[in-house]
Nucleic acid binder design. Structure first.
Lengths: 244, 244
DNA sequence: ATCATCCAGTGATCGGATCAATTTAGGGGG
DNA sequence: CCCCCTAAATTGATCCGATCACTGGATGAT
């Protein structure tokens, strides 16, 4: 049951494996918020890892909001179970469903962000935004190690001058990319994607909130449509492309 | 410099104190994404804690997306510095600014969520929503241990049938309550708050997305206005109230 | 100059020991 | 019989030191 030895390809750290196992445990047991989780000692024994390693996994899940650690009392499932279970996807089907929900979430939020960006952006923001513009035309720029070049949507959120909204979009995009590790969304018309970005940029720089919102909405609906089509017809000849 | 002994009231765990210290270190040093952070051993010595404790703090910050741990290479500041720095607020003034940004973020998102809820809710959702309705009238129900009674806005987000959006609202509300630990927002007209909730509920149950969005927007603008007024005039006679 | 190899630095994991907070079970007094 | 106070058991939190595993640069031969 344990068998966490580094057999073959073990790209992930033991700690994260343990965290994933714990999430699966909660999932399979059908535990609900408030339910208790076995003690640290028994968990460490169950997963066949050291207490320190288990502890790191616990902290990680606690930071995410998945579990609660109460000194002297025990370990409990956190209030927001979703956040815990979404940590590791179950099946590609679920992943696709998640991807669609992610796009729908963006569809609900980003038009407002575009409008706010049009109202609040500074000259610096505009510079960053225009700088992120040509990037979306590049095929798949394999940038430096771990510095993903700021893409258009992130820059747009930054221009809205609201840290919270930026954080939200950032986390959504991150989550989306994570989903893409499982399912690759085929995006046929890359040039069209870029053109839409340009038109959004123009609307924002014109300080036109209404037009910015509408164009952003249309853009995301386009992406949603492409994703839905890709969902019905599995990956065919066209290579999987990453888009932002 | 270390001095992490449990003097007086130390409600937070040592691990979290260390995490906070590390964040402050990054802040004061003015480190930017990609910059390297001292080694685990030196950090443990610097903060005067054991390596295991430091490690838990690191995992915690890593899970939040604040830092990057690379085996054999080093520790680095993560791509999203904001997420790191927002972990612990600096001053009440900043906190107030953050509270306003939080409300503005809700203002950008929740109307759309209300519209989606009007379109997508099921009978179960409606039941939960109506159940959460009378709660907002209660003064400050000190519920059981750690099960915050589902409040109206959370239920509304759940009715939108989009897990991502629910997560977003949930995190915003959580963050907001966290901010309230520092600054207490005075909300004068509690009855009005409740009436607005009721009218939103009616619009949603009528499957009227447009009206739902408009009412939600008005409701949040009300809250924003009250918060802004409280920001200008510091806490006076009226007791601080918690609202949702 | 090129490339394989080695080595120091650094994070990751381990094993057990000890401290601290919580809960629970008794025991004494009312 | 019930309540309060104390003590022990339970469980998470921290510590300590050691060892393993990955990376990157230095070393040296070709």
């Amino acid at each position: 049951m344990a068998a966490s030895s580094n057999m073959g390809l073990s790209r992930t750290s033991l700690t994260q494996q343990v965290a994933a196992q714990l999430v699966n445990y909660v999932r399979e047991k059908g535990l609900k918020p408030g339910d208790s989780i076995p003690t640290t000692r028994s968990l460490a024994a169950k997963f066949g890892v050291n207490s320190a390693t288990l502890r790191e996994a616990l902290r990680q899940l606690e930071a995410t909001g998945g579990i609660l650690l109460r000194h002297g009392s025990g370990i409990f499932v956190g209030p927001n179970l979703d956040r815990l279970l979404l940590a590791n996807p179950t099946s590609p089907a679920v992943s696709m469903e998640m991807a669609i929900q992610l796009i729908n979430a963006r569809l609900a939020i980003e038009p407002q962000i575009a409008a706010l960006a049009a109202l609040n952006y500074s000259t610096d923001d505009l510079a960053v935004l225009s700088e992120a513009l040509p990037v979306s035309r590049q095929p798949v720029t394999e940038g430096p190690r771990n510095l993903p070049s700021p893409n258009f949507h992130r820059a747009l959120a930054a221009a809205s001058r609201n840290v919270i909204l930026f954080e939200i979009i950032d986390s959504i995009l991150t989550a989306y990319r994570w989903e893409q590790h499982t399912i690759r969304v085929v995006f046929a018309d890359r040039e069209r994607d870029h053109q839409q970005h340009v038109s959004i940029f123009d609307a924002v720089s014109d300080r036109d909130p209404h037009r910015s919102a509408l164009l952003t909405e249309a853009h995301l609906k386009d992406i949603l449509g492409a994703t839905l089509k890709a969902a019905s017809s599995p990956s065919d000849t066209s290579p999987a492309l990453v888009r932002d």
